[in-house]
Design a protein around this nucleic acid. Sequence first.
DNA 1: AACTCGGGGCA
DNA 2: TGCCCAGAGTT
Length: 209
Amino acid sequence: MLTKECARQVIEEIIALYPNVETVLNYRNNYELLIAVMLSAQTTDIAVNKATVKLFERFPTPESVTHASPAEIEPYIQSIGLYRNKAKYMFQCCQQLVEKYSGEVPNNRKDLESLAGVGRKTANVILSVGFGIPAFAVDTHVSRVCKHHDIVPAKATPRQIEDYIISILPPELLTQAHQSIIFFGRNICHPRNPQCENYPQLYCCQEHI
DNA sequence: AACTCGGGGCA
DNA sequence: TGCCCAGAGTT
């Protein structure tokens, strides 16, 4: 495993490679962001991006969702898989938003994680990307990149990775680190055939614990 | 801790 | 065309 200093350096190099990537794109408000991230669970978000164009035309607000039903949501998200669950989560989540939070997306972890279909990863994305609150969302891309580059042990859980990254990075870097690492994981450090070797700068720091 | 939900992408 | 990918909830 890399030392903390070395791990921080590798992450800063990944940020330098992709300094301004926005992996969560084209969402106009935190309602759209929340739903889009929620729908992304176990799915490629390219598929989610396509589906959400028409989805948000039909359901522009939480209120508009509560006036419909899960069955009315399903046709819009059939292409993304697990769609019955997700239609149900989206409906219940919007009911909660309207009933408990005046139709606004809450800005703290406890309330976010109380919403249907919202777990720790989704909550962290909303906090960091939606509200600019220091938080670090660990999905399988982040997990793979961190393990492949020996930043964390191979057996580390998402929560352990989250806590470790927060302990080695300054808070103001967390959101961009998340987005840059995801971009790197999606496009270069693939699950199969990772091409990280083409990025020798990532290996400059070889200091291990 | 194991199981379930379901499609798209790629070899 | 069969294998692999990607989180949250439930039991």
